[in-house]
Design a protein around this nucleic acid. Structure first.
Lengths: 68, 68
DNA sequence: GCATAATGATCTTCAGGAGGACATTTTGAA
DNA sequence: TTCAAAATGTCCTCCTGAAGATCATTATGC
């Protein structure tokens, strides 16, 4: 599965969902879905905005977890 | 921007688009879009299949390139 | 206690990926 | 070189889910 670490990254910086949505321009519903890992599709634009805002790379945000 | 290194990864292994599509179960059109970097949205399921098949992590497949 | 902010949940709209079909190009064997 | 099969590019339709807005509920702090 692909694990999204947005909640962890946000937690480390004590960020709120509204903060991330407001500062990145990404829709709040989208941030919420990624935060709770209920998203199954992502816009590359969204990934870019989050990486830029969080100062991280794609690999920090998403991780491939092999669970055969 | 978010750069997709699928073409590079495929080139290193001398893989064809059909190979990747057939082996991963991902639609050929989707592989083509990622190969030519014309995709703007990705299914997490697709990323998972590609990572598993290529034996790489998400960060190897997608890279955040800051170009302010 | 109350006002404000934050979050969760739901609905509609719509862009674009998924999947399939067809045309064209490339490849390789005869 | 010729021809058939494979690979790729392109176009079309369908359908999912992000985007955006709104409302109800919960949390925060003054």
């Amino acid at each position: 599965m692909i694990k999204c670490h947005l909640s962890k990254l946000m937690g480390e910086k004590k960020l709120k969902i509204v903060d991330v949505a407001r500062e990145t321009g990404v829709n709040r519903g989208t941030v919420t879905r990624l935060y709770h890992e209920t998203a199954s599709r992502v816009e590359l634009e969204t990934i870019e905005a989050l990486c830029r805002y969080l100062g991280c790379d794609v690999g920090d945000l998403f991780e491939f977890v092999d669970e055969q």
